[in-house]
Amino acid sequence: MNDMLDRLIIRVFFTLFTILVLYAYKYAHYFLYPSAKKQLFRKFYPSANSADSLHLFSRLLGLGIVMSSFSFDQAEKVFTSALFFSFTSLLCIIIFLVSIYIMESIVLYNFEYSGEIIKKQNYSYALVSAALSLSVAFIIRTVNIQTQGNVVVFLLLWLLAMVLFGFSTKLYKLLSKLNFYQLLIQKNLAVGLSYGAFVLGCSFTICSVFYQEYDSLENYSLQIILKAILAAIVFPFFRLGIHFVYELKNDWQESELPEWGYGLYEGAVFFLACLFTSLITGHVYFGTIYPVF
């Protein structure tokens, strides 16, 4: 009975500690994004500005996704594991915010949060920003799980992941007929849905290439790059296959504004193709066909 009660108290302690980390995130976010002061340090009314709600909660969800990869190792003493947890969580928060900053500088370099979210309530912009936050969170979570607490390897693999993700975001122009920047300025939902799903799909594919056995950093990085190139080869097959099997027809004329249904169709096809690609790149085990002597 004593040990059950003791364990319960330790879990409550770690729960409070995690909430403390959430509090630290607020200040870290403000440090990197001073324009977000209103969003974080005053009372927040979700119904007042739905675009702002989407923007904020996507960041918090992203934080939650990143932190879900942490653990408290009771092989050490309670305070040592709490200290280690606080160090890794602080590092991951900073990495998460820096990643979002980098990706938004690459993708949304023409736009500003205050202009698009606060003044214009641009849902399309909020969708893209939310998708970027969640994508970056999934990638950081995967890298953290694979590196298992090794800080140097974590930083190096995070850089590699960011490079791959940055390249993949630029492929949207090749794959979609929608003019991203023009439609985003016009607050068109179709581009938000399409690009958001595309970016999420890319992050799932990148996560799948990271899930493999780690022996040495050099070999692991080479295998990641090979699998990423393989994903680029396999992806068009699934995209064409989905169009062919379900006889999907492009019914949008470039002279009109696209409906949100068109954006949903494009986004869903991208996302589905990425999910199937991650199956081929990450879940084919060659076992007895290519055994080891």
Partner: peptide, 20 residues
């Protein structure tokens, strides 16, 4: 252009796999 890029990616993949 897209087809050319695609074939380049395939050759790059085969070349890298052969090498490493």
């Amino acid at each position: 252009n897209k087809i050319g890029v695609y074939f380049f990616i395939i050759i790059l993949y085969l070349g890298l796999t052969r090498g490493v």
